[in-house]
């Protein structure tokens, strides 16, 4: 990691670590812990999506579907077949990877936004399967009796325990992603985003990298889905529809596409917006999201993170931000 990132990493890590203590001291917002658990789960999805959007220049409208594949695989294997959740989780991840590979290989061999089209259709199909396969998924009335999680016989019961588990995993995924970005693979991804033809001519197998990053994003989404399942212990298809895929894209865009920190910021912010501050809008929620997207696209194409970067203290020229060794 670069020094700037290492610095931000430490600060964010500390903020996240003291958050439960802080929230506990302020009355009326103790449920913010719960919102942050969801934000952490969604952050896993958005980290993968941010790599795909910001660094490989592709959009996926099926992240909610991959999230759902992980969630339902875990749900079905644990609730119906009594599997250990920790064994069900990798099965969901592998399944999502296989599916992403099948969708991604043909769509990503072509230049342009074929992946967006392919994933749009695929996401809708997956959602229909979740709704219609009533025997397996419980259909629209949902799936119940999903067990919680336990580590070495010790049940994760309190919100605070869930909070630290989820955010611990987010930080591991973040670390992994930063390592990738500041390496041979990351340079290849950034090169693809900037000058695909030149990258290819310099020896980068561009199609293979795009597929890899898409598969990686699907795996992260599936793992997030598994945790979601065991945290909520109830599944309904509406959590995995197209609207959710768009929401994930929006989270990445609001925060800032070419920055993993941006993805994290956007996810936390929009999770609070969706779970907390927008409840009053009820059915008009979609309109609000549309408005947010419009404002970001028009006035903040680099996302909120660009404002923080330009601000005092956080100001770093783009030269030094991208400069130096990994």
């Amino acid at each position: 990691m670069r020094t700037t990132d290492r610095w931000i990493f430490t600060v964010v890590f500390l903020l996240i670590a003291v958050f439960p203590w802080l929230v506990g001291r302020i009355s009326g917002i103790s449920h913010y812990i719960e919102v942050m658990i969801f934000a952490g789960i969604f952050s896993l999805v958005c980290l993968g999506l941010s790599l795909l959007m910001g660094y490989a220049g592709q959009i996926s409208l099926a992240q909610a579907a991959f999230f759902g594949i992980g969630a339902y695989t875990s749900g079905i294997l644990t609730a119906r077949f009594d599997w250990n959740p920790w064994l069900a989780m990798p099965v969901g991840a592998v399944l999502a990877a296989a599916v992403a590979w099948i969708v991604g290989v043909p769509a990503l061999r072509l230049r342009g936004h074929y992946l967006a089209m392919a994933t749009l259709g695929f996401g809708v199909i997956v959602h229909i399967v979740f709704s219609e396969e009533v025997e397996w998924t419980g259909g629209p009335s949902g799936m119940v009796d999903i067990p919680g999680l336990a580590i070495a016989g010790w049940r994760i019961s309190s919100e605070v325990q869930w909070y630290y588990l989820i955010w611990g995993i987010v930080f591991l995924a973040l670390l992994f992603s930063f390592h990738i970005l500041h390496s041979r693979v990351g340079r290849a991804l950034r090169a693809i985003h900037e000058e695909e033809i030149a990258a290819e001519a310099m020896g980068v197998p561009t199609a293979r990298y795009k597929v890899q990053i898409f598969v990686f994003g699907a795996v992260l989404a599936a793992i997030a889905g598994s945790f979601y399942t065991h945290y909520v212990t109830f599944l309904s298809p509406s959590s995995f529809n197209l609207m959710w895929s768009i929401r994930f894209v929006l989270m990445v865009m609001v925060g800032g596409m070419q920055s993993l920190w941006g993805a994290l910021l956007g996810t936390v912010l929009l999770t609070f917006v969706g779970n907390e501050w927008l409840q009053v809008f009820a059915d008009f929620e979609v309109l609000v999201y549309g408005a947010i997207l419009l404002v970001v696209a028009l006035f903040l194409p680099q996302g909120l993170i660009s404002v923080l970067r330009r601000g005092p203290g956080g100001a770093r020229s783009s030269v030094s931000r991208l400069g130096g060794e990994g």
């Binding site: 992603s177 990738i180 390496s183 041979r184 693979v185 340079r187 090169a191 033809i197 310099m202 130096g324």
Partner: peptide
């Protein structure tokens, strides 16, 4: 057709791509 937002050094480092091999897992971990 340079990678304009990457540094001068990173542009040349990208040129080493086909002569090196660390993949996804090796770099991530």
């Amino acid at each position: 057709a340079l990678f304009k937002s990457m540094t001068v050094l990173e542009n040349v480092m990208l040129g080493r791509h086909s002569r090196t091999r660390s993949g996804f897992w090796a770099t991530g971990l």
